[in-house]
Every structure is written in C-alpha cells, then in structure tokens.
C-alpha cells in the first residue's frame, strides 16, 4: 500500500527537520523527489544522505527563495524540468516563524511570515494545479500547524498564515475535485526541530504536559501522514486536515 513509484514529488523546505523526513519517506515509497529550499549546499547534503540507501537517481535539488514571488512562480516548472516529468505530488512544507507578542510585532514580522507561509504555498498550488487539472491527476499536501486551529500567544502571524492555509486548501479542494485532484492539509503539533529548539525549556516542559501521548513529536511522526495523503489509496480524501499532534488538540 501507499506506493508512489515513479511519481514526481516536490517538497519545499526540504532542508528542515520535517521536510527532509517527508522527502525521505516519499522517496522510500518509490517517488522521484525534488528537494527545494533556500540553501543549495544543505539540500545537496540531504539528497546525498537520502540516496545512500539507493535510488540516488530519483533525487533532485532545486533551490528557490520563496519570499521572492517570481521564484515561487517559477519553481514548479523548474522542478518538472529537473525531474523530467510532470509533477504528481506537491508538498508545501516550507515555513518560517517570527514570534513575538502582537503589541511588539513589526509589520515586517507579519508580512514576511504571511509571504513565505501562505502566499508562496498559494503560488505553488496555482502553478501546480494548472497541469494537474489538465492531467486529471495530482496530490497537494500542505503542511500547516496545530496553532492554525488553536492559536498561540506570540504567533499571531504564524497562526494566521497556517489557518489561512487550511481555508485555502479547502477552497482548492472544491475547485479541483471534479478532476480527481486532491488537496489536503497535515497539521503537526509540537515537533522537535530547529524551529522548536529555540523555545525555552520551561515552555517545552509545559507543552509536553499538555500532550496526552506524553512527548514532543519527531519528524518521523509526521512524514507517514504525508505519504498517505499523497498516495492513490487516499483518492477519496480531500479538503481534510489531518492532525498529528500527540492528542494535544483533538479537533
């Protein structure tokens, strides 16, 4: 089940903790994976590490700065060129945070997070959908966050972007459904990555206390959810938000 043999998948933010695990998991299912991110060198290292177990020829690197609208618009086409085939799976995983309480939040903190975490995924969805609708096939999986549903003090910008992503995904799912193209969202809870390493220990302890499964998540907890939603077997699932958060928020 859940094989993705020969399908071209693009993963943004593939140098990050969750992104590289998603890339690894899709690749393990047989997909041709294009890794995107801002740092070419790191992406190449990630690709080399994934390719160690074999299938290195199914890995490609395509760096892009998603805060640049033109770069986001062009990414799907360049990924397809690298892979030599049309895109079957788009995983919008790239994201960044600029945490601070709202009363101290600068316009730039707000705008940058909205640009990279919401506008760029929209641009990638738009570009990917054109081909997917025509081919009557495709899977889009957007990586949101539990805070898009629950909110979180200090993350008005990030929570707004992630909530926006969920609403956007539901709209696109309705637009693309008649063509067999699905659009779903995975909403991770608190996962141990560089993004959450910066949280103070006291806050982390408190967070873990609010998780019924009693631990922070690992990237390996998230990637299988993406594999499922990217697979043929998930063909009757669209507009859904799959919460993977250790039970922290049961929505």
């Amino acid at each position: 089940m859940f094989r993705l043999d020969g399908k071209v998948a693009l993963v943004t933010g593939a140098s990050g903790g969750i992104g590289r695990e998603i890339a690894r998991a899709l690749h393990a299912q047989g997909a041709v994976v294009v890794l995107s991110g801002t740092r070419q060198g790191v992406l190449e290292d990630v690709a080399a590490s994934i390719g160690e177990q074999g299938g290195a020829e199914r890995l490609h690197v395509c760096a892009a700065d998603l805060s640049d609208a033109a770069a986001a618009d062009a990414l799907i086409a360049s990924a397809e060129e690298k892979a030599g085939a049309p895109l079957a799976i788009l995983v919008n995983n790239a994201g960044l945070t600029r945490d601070t309480l709202a009363i101290r939040m600068k316009d730039d903190d707000w705008q940058r997070v909205l640009d990279v975490d919401l506008a760029a995924p929209f641009r990638l969805c738009r570009a990917a959908l054109k081909g997917m609708l025509r081919r009557r096939a495709g899977r889009i999986v957007n990586i949101a966050s539990v805070v898009g549903v629950t909110g979180n003090a200090g993350q008005a910008n990030y929570a707004a972007a992630k909530a926006g992503m969920i609403g956007m995904g539901k709209s696109l799912a309705q637009e693309a459904g008649s063509r067999g193209v699905t659009v779903n969202t995975v909403a991770p809870g608190f996962v141990q990555t560089a993004m959450t390493d910066v949280l103070p220990d006291a806050q982390k302890e408190k967070l873990v206390g609010s998780i019924p499964l009693g631990r922070m998540g690992q990237p390996q907890d998230i990637a299988p959810a993406v594999v499922y939603l990217a697979s043929d077997e998930a063909g009757w699932v669209t507009g859904a938000t799959l919460h993977v958060n250790g039970g922290m928020a049961m929505v």
Partner: peptide, 11 residues
C-alpha cells in the same frame, strides 16, 4: 463543459 472547463478554455 463544466465551469472549470470554461475557465481553462479562456486561459
């Protein structure tokens, strides 16, 4: 055609 087809045609 459905409504999506008409949009794709225009494009």
């Amino acid at each position: 055609a459905d409504s999506l087809d008409t949009v794709e045609l225009v494009m």
